[in-house]
């Protein structure tokens, strides 16, 4: 029996694989039978403490709580909210945790949710802290993979784009590496390669294989998943490199033609131009579905942390 009641979620590594699996299976039944969970969280309140705006994440959490019959309160921008500047996170959370049964915090400072969790009497979920962690995005990605491919082990996954600063990529790689038999194809410009420390960690703590590529075409025919990320122009060292390389990291139908028929194209969204619009109608493009599944992943997570998952 998995019991996550009262726990916080700061990083995906706070959950073991059995706990993740329990969250996945409840999320799946929520997706299949949404109406039967419509009063699961009746009387519960979710506080959304967004110290920086992130409309998508906030709406996804709010939708998740509302779909379970709970209520929501919160703020979406600390500068216009009641949270005064200069107040410590500890003080804020010690007041606000009496207003809600569960809290999600988004904060530009890395480690802020971990600090908040040390003072919170109710479960606290990290809704993204700077470039550090975003565990519910990882759960969303896992759920998408689980639903479409039916497994999370023995996967060949290509990550394309900004692998240096992309926290979504880091979290997902670290988590998938905990399952047996993963192979990662890392497609990025030289300047935006996976951080050496993460590579070292993967090599020491998992059986995964890492293959670095410069071009998408090298990986596409082999992989089960292509995970695309946005490359910001400012990340390139010079304009010439940017112009030379920018199309290497754009997925279009010519490139997609080389992929397996069942491959998934994933993206944490929002996209800019790294996936051509012509791909959207391809059955392999699941990035909008990902956003939908994010609601079920968050519903299931909150039900577990509130201890109502067995009801």
């Amino acid at each position: 029996m998995i019991d996550l009641r009262g726990r916080h979620l700061i990083s995906p590594s706070d959950l073991d694989l059995r706990e993740i699996s329990s969250i996945m299976s409840l999320a799946q039944s929520m997706q299949q039978n949404l109406s039967s969970y419509a009063s699961l969280c009746r009387g519960k309140i979710l506080a959304t403490l967004f110290y920086e705006p992130s409309t998508r994440t906030k709406l996804s959490f709010e939708s998740a709580m509302l779909r379970m019959g709970g209520n929501i309160l919160g703020f979406s921008d600390a500068s216009t909210s009641a949270v005064s500047k200069g107040e410590s996170i500890a003080d804020t959370i010690r007041v606000l945790d009496s207003y809600a049964d569960i809290v999600v915090m988004r904060h530009p400072k890395e480690g802020a949710p971990k600090l908040a969790a040390q003072y919170s009497r109710v479960p606290l979920i990290n809704g993204g802290d700077g470039g550090h962690q975003h565990p519910t995005q990882t759960l969303t990605d896992l759920l998408t993979i689980h639903m479409y491919l039916g497994r999370t082990s023995h996967l060949k996954v290509a990550f394309c784009g900004d692998l240096k600063y992309g926290r979504t990529v880091h979290s997902l790689i670290e988590t998938l590496a905990r399952y047996p038999g993963a192979t990662f194809y890392l497609i990025s410009p030289e300047e935006l390669r996976l951080p050496p420390r993460l590579k070292e960690h993967l090599e020491q703590h998992s059986d995964c294989a890492l293959i670095e590529c410069r071009r998408m075409e090298e990986a596409l025919p082999a992989v089960d998943i292509l995970y695309m990320t946005r490359i910001q122009k400012e990340r390139f060292f010079n304009e010439a490199d940017y112009l030379r390389l920018k199309n290497s990291y754009v997925l279009d139908s010519d490139k997609l033609a080389q992929a397996k028929a069942k491959m998934l194209v994933m993206h944490p969204l929002p996209r800019v131009n790294e996936i051509a619009y012509e791909i959207d109608s391809d059955p392999r493009a699941v990035y909008f579905k990902q956003a939908e599944l994010g609601v079920y992943a968050r519903m299931s997570l909150m039900a577990h942390l509130l201890g109502v998952d067995g009801l």
Binding site: S88, I89, D91, K109, E110, D129
Partner: peptide, 13 residues
């Protein structure tokens, strides 16, 4: 050493 770290901006921690 991380300028984005919460310990560099929150006086309490």
């Amino acid at each position: 050493g991380n300028p984005r770290c919460v310990t560099n901006s929150d006086a309490y921690v």
